[in-house]
């Protein structure tokens, strides 16, 4: 058996184990609290995967994605409040979110690099401003309650395990679409526009259109995760559209490692777990978030997981050489040579 088939076999086995574990999670976790955290992780993983399309594969850093997330949530919540059904409210929310993504794209793509980031930040703040200040429409700081969860195909999602399975299905669909996207010619041309926009233009690709399509694709899954969120929380408030929310998702994408499929998922696990743990002990989540950002930038520019592995190996080999007196082989530095994707300025 060649080594390639062995690693391929191992890979399939790992995926199968992961699927079985995810599929049976409510059975072996049991506790509702932890099942809910798992649902949270899955829905934020969808959000992080969506943002990663832009940050990782397109090299466009958006700080307004919480705005799109909130647009989906608010549209559905408002329509539900007016008495429309779940199907109508959700379809309308997706359409509105896609339209909003198109507007975001047209405006933000007037620029790349810092300009793109600043424009998306401003657009995100507009959404926050509407949610917070236009109280007669959105209820302002009081938010909107979502009283019921939908029952697709007659299956009620009211209980924690059933909602978890709904999140899992959506998550797997999102992941599948991401795998297809990364392998597709569209994904390849998007990476091309990130690395060599000029050459792509010279080769006859419409760089603007490729980026536009990427934003729409990202906006779609952002909207879907926004819908999951309002059904999970059964409540939406302007907090969802705040800059902190955009920053949190960006942290998920970056902490796991950008431009990978597993990175944003790992990032979602880290951030959601950490947020729940930290919030249980102290009120200072923003402070912790800020410190994590600075620590990542200063010590682990390649992302939390690869960075921790590198630091761990480094400290391990240093300790070993101290104790044994024999110099170990030098710590692996090559991981650190791959910094975050360079954003054209």
């Amino acid at each position: 058996m060649s080594s390639e088939t062995v690693s391929g076999w191992r890979r399939s086995a790992a995926i199968a184990v992961a699927l079985v574990l995810l599929g049976t999670l409510p059975l072996w976790v049991g506790n509702t609290y932890y099942i809910n955290i798992a649902s949270q992780i899955l829905l934020f993983a969808v959000f992080a995967l969506a943002l990663n399309v832009l940050v990782g594969y397109a090299g466009l850093v958006s700080l307004g994605h919480a705005g799109l997330f909130a647009i989906a949530g608010y549209t559905a919540a408002l329509l539900l409040q007016m008495g429309y059904g779940h199907l109508a409210a959700n379809s309308a929310a997706v359409v509105v979110t896609l339209a909003a993504s198109a507007i975001f794209a047209v405006l933000a793509l007037r620029s790349t690099g810092i300009g793109f980031l600043m424009i998306t930040l401003a657009l995100g703040q507009i959404v926050w401003g509407i949610a917070y200040r236009w109280a007669s429409l959105t209820g302002g700081d009081n938010g909107i309650n979502v009283t019921t969860r939908p029952a697709p195909f007659g299956l009620s999602l009211a209980s924690a395990p059933s909602f978890y399975f709904a999140c899992l299905v959506v998550f797997l669909l999102a992941l599948g679409s991401m795998i297809l996207f990364v392998r597709s010619p569209f994904g390849a041309s998007l990476r091309g526009t990130r690395d060599q926009a000029r050459r792509m233009t010279a080769l006859g690709y419409d760089v603007w259109l490729i980026r536009f399509a990427a934003i729409i694709f990202s906006g779609f899954w952002t909207g879907i995760s926004g819908l999951l969120f309002i059904y999970y929380n059964q409540f939406i408030s302007p907090q969802v559209a705040a800059l902190t929310a955009s920053a949190e998702v960006l942290l998920m994408v970056i902490s796991g490692g950008t431009a990978t499929l597993l990175g944003p998922i790992a990032g979602a696990v880290i951030v959601v777990v950490m947020k729940n743990v930290v919030s249980a002990y102290i009120e200072r989540w923003n402070l912790v978030l800020g410190v994590i950002f600075i620590v990542i930038i200063t010590f682990m520019p390649e992302g939390l997981i690869p960075g921790t592995v590198r630091l761990w190996r480094w400290s391990w080999s240093t300790l070993n050489s101290r104790w044994n007196g024999t110099p170990e082989k030098p710590a692996q530095e090559d991981a650190s040579k791959e910094p975050m994707p360079k954003v054209p300025t």
Binding site: V55, V61, L63, G113, I114, L117, A247, L250, I254, L289, G290, V291, I292, F293, I294, I296, I297, P301, P339, M340, P341, V343, T345
Partner: peptide
């Protein structure tokens, strides 16, 4: 750009 954004945001 991205590290600068994260640092200042942090």
């Amino acid at each position: 750009v991205l590290p600068q954004v994260l640092l200042t945001l942090g």
